[in-house]
Amino acid sequence: MSATLVFKALSDPTRRSIIELLKKQDMTAGDIAEHFQMTKPSISHHLHTLQNAGLVLSERKGQHIIYSLNTTVFQDIVAWMLTVSGKEKEK
C-alpha cells in the first residue's frame, strides 16, 4: 500500500463519489458512469487511479468488468493514521 497513491486518489471529489457508490454495491463502469455527467473514458481514468491506489478491485465476468471496494486498504490506512497519530501524542 502506498499512502501517497491512496491520498492522491482520495483527493478528487469524483473518486470519493465513486467510492460511495461502490460502498453500496459492486458495479460496472457503465453503471458508475450513469451517476455522473462525464464521458465513460473519464470514469475509466478515475477507476484506474483508484485501482492503482489499491482502493478498488476489478473482476471480469463475461464481457463486463465488475468493480468493488478493497476494504483491506482502507483498514491499512486507518491503522497507519492511528500509528502516526499515536507517535505525535508521544512527543
Rank of each mutant, 00 (worst) to 15 (best):
65 I>S: 12
45 H>N: 12
49 T>L: 12
50 L>P: 00
10 L>Y: 09
86 G>N: 15
68 S>D: 10
14 T>K: 12
46 H>Y: 11
90 E>R: 13
25 Q>F: 01
2 S>W: 02
2 S>P: 06
55 L>D: 04
6 V>F: 08
71 T>A: 08
24 K>M: 10
47 L>F: 00
27 M>F: 02
78 V>I: 15
57 L>F: 11
25 Q>P: 04
61 K>C: 09
47 L>D: 02
41 P>D: 00
16 R>Q: 15
48 H>D: 08
35 H>V: 01
30 G>N: 13
52 N>K: 12
8 K>D: 07
14 T>I: 15
44 S>H: 06
13 P>H: 06
28 T>R: 09
60 R>Q: 15
87 K>Q: 15
76 D>F: 02
11 S>W: 05
55 L>F: 07
5 L>N: 08
88 E>R: 13
79 A>M: 09
85 S>I: 05
60 R>K: 15
5 L>D: 09
17 S>H: 09
78 V>H: 08
29 A>H: 02
64 H>P: 04
28 T>A: 10
70 N>V: 04
71 T>L: 12
75 Q>S: 12
79 A>G: 00
75 Q>D: 13
50 L>C: 01
62 G>R: 06
24 K>T: 05
4 T>N: 06
71 T>I: 10
44 S>G: 11
10 L>I: 03
79 A>I: 06
74 F>I: 00
57 L>R: 13
33 A>L: 03
12 D>M: 05
16 R>S: 15
34 E>T: 10
65 I>M: 11
71 T>E: 15
16 R>G: 08
63 Q>P: 03
53 A>S: 14
82 L>Y: 13
16 R>F: 06
53 A>E: 00
34 E>R: 15
85 S>R: 09
59 E>V: 14
81 M>V: 14
25 Q>S: 12
31 D>L: 10
65 I>W: 09
90 E>H: 09
